[in-house]
Deep mutational scan, measured.
Amino acid sequence: MFYPNSPQTSPQLTQIPYGQQYAMMQRQIQQPYHPFATTEPQARLYPYHYQGPIQQEQGGFITQQSTAASPQYVQMRVTPVDQSIMSGYPNQTANGSSSSSFNYNIHPQQQQQQQQQQQQLRHHAMPVGSVPLQDDRYRKQLIVNYLAPDVTSTDLHELFSRFGELDGARIIYDKQTNMSKGYGFVYFCHAEDAKEAVERMSGYEFHGKWLKVGYSTNPLNIVPSNSSPYVHAGSRGAAG
């Protein structure tokens, strides 16, 4: 039997160049792979992502010199942007860049009308829970959420009447099932009393439920100042 490094198959040491006398086997001759043993700084910083320098080929596509990437890492192929796409944008300079302001050559009167329309939209648009300043009635009506099913309009009136005089209180019921929808409205005579009720009743436990109280901004629920107070009856038909 002959071994790869046996004296019968191995040459004389004098015939082997210096430095390879003890590297006779194939696994010894093959050098191990060192990912950080390279002179390129990109490979030292990113050993798993770097795959060699990027070269520009004919046709405008950018390719990489090395083989496919590892399945664990996804390499994105980048193509140059066609400058003709950006030619339609206004205020574009000769080098292809555009300024931040756009001039669509709008007539001054049209621009003024658009600004007025935007101001009107901001004036009428009102986020949930906010209180408008032009109508004091919005500051007097509250919406009470997360009410228990057994709470009546009379219970709601008695709960909030300790903060001040009320114009009314009612629970909203479903017309088909005649069941409470879980929320109601309270109408105060003074805005200061309503503000105190919002601050003190939010998070209050009532009939096993934690109440959420806020201003009601729905104009359909506003009680006119010259109208008669609501009837605080315990029956659902009268309260709904």
Rank of each mutant, 00 (worst) to 15 (best):
T9G: 13
Q28H: 12
S10K: 04
F188A: 01
S84E: 13
H107D: 05
S101G: 12
Q65T: 14
G208V: 00
Y18P: 06
M24C: 04
G203L: 01
Q26M: 07
Q72F: 15
F2T: 04
P32N: 04
V128L: 07
S225C: 10
S98P: 08
Y33D: 11
I85S: 08
P47F: 15
G59K: 09
E192A: 03
Y138L: 01
F2M: 03
Q119S: 08
I222P: 02
P71M: 07
R236Q: 04
E205S: 13
I106V: 07
L159M: 14
Y204H: 06
R200D: 03
Q75V: 15
V81F: 14
T217P: 00
K212V: 01
Q65L: 14
Y230V: 05
L147V: 10
P90W: 15
Y3R: 10
Y204R: 05
G96Q: 10
H232E: 06
Y230A: 04
S99G: 11
D150L: 02
Y3F: 13
Q28R: 10
T154S: 09
M126T: 04
D193K: 02
T39H: 14
L166G: 03
L45E: 13
Q26L: 14
F160Y: 07
A239P: 12
Q141D: 00
I54F: 11
T9E: 12
S70G: 13
Y104P: 07
P71K: 03
P224A: 09
F102E: 02
Q26P: 12
R137Q: 06
S70M: 10
Q64Y: 09
T39P: 12
S99R: 13
N103H: 05
Y230H: 05
Y33N: 07
Y50G: 08
F163I: 07
I222Q: 04
P219H: 01
Y215C: 00
V78E: 03
A194V: 00
S161I: 11
A191T: 07
H107L: 12
Y33C: 08
L133Y: 03
Q8W: 11
H107K: 09
Q112T: 09
Q75N: 05
E57V: 14
S6F: 15
G184L: 00
H157D: 06
G168V: 14
Y18I: 05
H157T: 06
Q113K: 04
F160D: 02
T152M: 09
G168T: 06
Q176E: 12
F61C: 11
S180Y: 05
M24N: 06
S97I: 08
M179K: 06
P41C: 14
H123P: 09
G203I: 00
D136G: 08
G168Y: 02
Q111P: 08
G237I: 03
G234C: 08
H190D: 10
Y22R: 09
S227H: 08
Q112E: 07
E205P: 08
H207E: 01
Q120V: 14
